[in-house]
Simulated assay, not measured.
Amino acid sequence: MKKLFIMIFLSGLMVACQKNTENQDQSQYPTDFAKVLEAHGGIDQWKKGRTLNFTIGDPVDGQKHTVDLHSRMDKITTSDYEIGFDGNKAWVLNKEGKYERNPTFMHDLMFYFYAMPFVLADEGLNYEKTADKEIRGETYQGIKITFEPGVGNSSSDEYYLYYDPETYQMAWLAYKATFGKDKKPEWPNFISYDKWSEESGVLLPTSIAWYTAEEGQVGEERNRVDFNTISLSQESQPEGFYSKPENAVFGEEE
């Protein structure tokens, strides 16, 4: 499986989206963003789901993700390790060798990449119309997403959702994030959302790709992540599914 070297890119977005949105409906969003959500099946349909499953890499031996969409507990299983979040703390279980990354940061990172555009409907985010953007010969309309004060690792981070003006389907995500630095980058990074499939009434990505970008101009594809064995169920996992296994340790105990 390709190395997911882009693992730090949505840190601010992850923290901002930690809260679930049980009490929100589509009418609370600006019209353009509400239409994007509707084009992907609608926020109400998304909220009917309870358990999201997807695999990165090989369908049999890849990185298997399971997420409770209501509590945001999760678990990632591979042949080498397991990491997860029990609702309070992240944990890691080493099987072969040692898991070298920080499970507190890593346990839900790919979920936030994957669950676009629905994670952008979480609490603590603000929306405004932004200028149209030409990307690789196509023109897209955009929505700028920022954070309320005190939300996320850095409230100054910015995200841009670009969508097809005819279908309202999401096409690109751009972002300017500090990642612990004092100053945001001048130019954003870009992720292409170019492959989708319908699962339980909502559109979910089957592949996303990071592109080179210089001075706001998108260049060539540089890394692609494929998703498979995708499912969205209204059923919960058994009690204890997301709990720390007996031989695992919490992230801060490593």
Rank of each mutant, 00 (worst) to 15 (best):
W46Y: 15
T178N: 08
S236T: 13
G216V: 04
E100V: 07
K95T: 05
N88C: 07
P59G: 03
P103C: 04
W210F: 13
V225L: 14
A115S: 14
T130D: 07
L120Q: 07
W210A: 15
Y29F: 15
Y175E: 10
N223S: 09
F250K: 06
Y211W: 11
P185K: 00
C17D: 12
P117M: 06
I8N: 10
S79H: 14
T51H: 09
I6Y: 14
G180A: 03
A213K: 03
N228K: 05
T31F: 08
W91T: 03
P238K: 12
I8P: 07
T55K: 11
V151L: 01
D80L: 07
S79P: 01
D61F: 12
G240F: 06
K129C: 06
Q45Y: 02
V202C: 11
D132C: 08
Y127R: 09
R222G: 10
L37E: 08
I76E: 14
E235K: 14
E138A: 14
Y81M: 12
P238G: 12
E123C: 05
G219D: 00
H70K: 10
P238S: 09
Q26F: 01
G251Q: 04
K181R: 13
F118Y: 15
D25H: 06
A39C: 13
Q141I: 05
D194R: 02
Y168D: 15
P205G: 09
T206E: 13
G12P: 04
Q234N: 11
I56Q: 02
G240T: 01
E199N: 08
P238L: 06
Y81V: 09
I6M: 13
L37K: 06
A16Y: 08
G219W: 00
R101Q: 10
G124R: 03
E239H: 12
E134Q: 13
A177R: 09
Q237D: 04
G49H: 09
F241P: 00
S11N: 11
E38Y: 02
R136C: 02
P149T: 02
T104A: 11
T66A: 13
P103K: 03
D86A: 04
Y29N: 08
G240W: 07
E128M: 11
Y160W: 10
N53W: 04
H70C: 05
D108N: 13
A171D: 02
S243E: 15
F85Q: 01
H107W: 06
M116V: 13
S236N: 12
F147W: 07
E253M: 12
Y162W: 11
K48V: 01
I83E: 06
F111I: 07
K98E: 14
E199W: 04
S11C: 10
Y81L: 12
W196G: 08
M1F: 10
A171Y: 00
D182F: 09
G84F: 01
V202N: 12
R72L: 15
S155V: 01
I76R: 02
I43T: 08
D226K: 10
Q45N: 11
E100P: 00
T55D: 00
S200C: 02
K75F: 02
G137L: 07
G142T: 11
K244P: 00
E123R: 06
L93M: 03
Y114E: 07
I8Q: 09
L232W: 09
A34M: 00
F5P: 01
Q169H: 10
T55L: 08
S71M: 04
P30A: 05
E221R: 14
P149W: 03
K75L: 03
E253D: 15
V36R: 04
F54T: 01
M106C: 04
